[in-house]
Design a protein around this nucleic acid. Sequence first.
DNA 1: ATATTTTACGAAAACGTTTTCGTGTTGACA
DNA 2: TGTCAACACGAAAACGTTTTCGTAAAATAT
Lengths: 357, 357
Amino acid sequence: MKRKITLKQIAKELDVSVSTVSKALSNSKEISEDTTQKIQAFAKLYNYKPNNIALSLKNRKTKTIGILIPEIVHHFFSTVIRGIERVANRRGYNVIVGLSNESFTKEIINMEMLANGSIDGFILSISKETLLKQDYHHFNATINQGMPIVMFDRVVNEVDCDKVIVDDFNGAVKAVKKLIENQCKHIALITTLDYVSVGRLRTQGYLEALQNNGIEADSNLILKIDDSLDVENNLDILETEIAQFFKSNPNIDGVFAVNELYAVSAMKVARKLGLKIPDDVQVIGFTDGVLSKHATPSLTTVSQHGQKIGEQSANLLIDRLEAEDAEPEQYFTNTEKKRDFIKVVIETEIIERESTK
Amino acid sequence: MKRKITLKQIAKELDVSVSTVSKALSNSKEISEDTTQKIQAFAKLYNYKPNNIALSLKNRKTKTIGILIPEIVHHFFSTVIRGIERVANRRGYNVIVGLSNESFTKEIINMEMLANGSIDGFILSISKETLLKQDYHHFNATINQGMPIVMFDRVVNEVDCDKVIVDDFNGAVKAVKKLIENQCKHIALITTLDYVSVGRLRTQGYLEALQNNGIEADSNLILKIDDSLDVENNLDILETEIAQFFKSNPNIDGVFAVNELYAVSAMKVARKLGLKIPDDVQVIGFTDGVLSKHATPSLTTVSQHGQKIGEQSANLLIDRLEAEDAEPEQYFTNTEKKRDFIKVVIETEIIERESTK
DNA sequence: ATATTTTACGAAAACGTTTTCGTGTTGACA
DNA sequence: TGTCAACACGAAAACGTTTTCGTAAAATAT
């Protein structure tokens, strides 16, 4: 087991100086052809590769991006990661992943762990607990230390940074509009409590679509699920709530759910109650994940294009990193030449499947 | 925007030496109480945190684990990551993720990118293409450079390292045995081509269970799907193949599928052909993901405990890293005191749901 | 008063690079 | 033969730490 070889060892072995080796390997014309050849051959033989950590220290940049998300076992988030990794890799960056597990404290700990030199910038989505507390000091602190952040999906106005979001509002509008066009008269909404911004926006879209079409919103037709409890493991609770909801509103002929799980559960419950999909009830969900695709009947859904979100986020971040890089140093601190923070909106798309007519 | 403060800056500001600052911050008793207090106060005020990169360089260890997997948008793999991240975080490590995308070349590139100092060790699952080529030199090269590897799920005998695997064979045996006990007489197998080891093992388990129960295997009842094409996006192909399979074998009353998707598709097709589940056909899948849980009917399945696999892998790796660490240097290279490579087998568990009686 | 020990700190090396600058040797040119 | 440029290389600094070792000054012992 031979440890990785270093410049110093090559230098010693070949009886030249470290600087000569370094220059020879980068094909500097300061070094004679002879020595260059000799050194390169030797380096190749021993499979020399410069040590990343040393480079990071020297260049004061790590060429790695920190991703901080609430949860990884989640189709949407893993799609985003895939997008990030794609462009990161293409542009020569690595990706380091931290999970907040929806916890405020873990979010902070993770940020601090990574912010101390390990990465050049963050791409993150805010944890539920943080959204609830509305405490964003750690984001601002990180930014103030000169580390750029790109937020996606769950973003917040209180932090000044680039953002990539799904057009939740219009996605919901489109979905509900489609139900209306499909002759649904009593469209139910299954949503979350309001503090997660995406849930709120989708709810607003639902209301907007109704209003645009002259339908009066009926608060009885809105079911708010408390998703602070872990729904995945409390499926029965979810299902009984939905069943109750259907029973008290037998006139429901269309359902818009703010996520896949609610939509699929709604279908399941509806069928147990003897309702046919899409004949008696049509259903549209949000998020195009495995569930939508493979449910029976397969679910018409609003696709968020998670991968595109990831790619955009990564590009925004890396662009900014390399821009910082280009300007030697801000000569005029007041005339900051940096591009303003932008908010990219990724359009949604309705994927029609069997749960609508 | 003030950049992170360094020891040197503190030293200058307080008019002491860098070494003094360093010692004061680590509460060395070499430094007087007065100066210690002063320095610590100042450091706290400016929120000093040691630079990780510098530490990594000095200590020649990064406290980061590299994960290299074929795909992240995949319930099993993301569960494993979650497990890894959990213990890594608890034990003070970070996690950096690379995706091979099932490609041999990307696997190599990613490994090389990370092996140059960025991480202390690998946890990985081999890409399909690599398994096909049976070229494992990059793994052995990495190991020879002194970087430990832990492989999980898709492992291979040709590489000497710690391994964590699912008991695919026995999982399959258990599943098929259950079908037999449930009075199935003609049990079909839906599997992949043989080169992915897990597929092969599950197939063997199927055969074994039949044999143990005095049932003769019927090659007509085995459907091998070529999953080199991207099944997710070619669902119709998969479904027609399965439909064809059912039609040519109308006597099938039980199905064991080596993954969720095949199982769910089989259920879908079966129902379209007018078969009732579980009355006419009982189905068991492998991998306990979202699909199994939320399919209608929900799918009885063999759970692999991905999170546990991740946790075990991480513990194995970190244990080895810290063991290396403990022994100052191998005085006797021949009397290597390292623990032997072990293979941990994570038992599977059958989760009974609605697709079996 | 002298010798010895403790106290409190600084200098420097090391981790592995890259880069700037300096310098000895060679060759060309006047 | 003397001057100068070109060439080929090395020394040293820098990135931010920790740690070993050395050493003045102060405290204690003789």
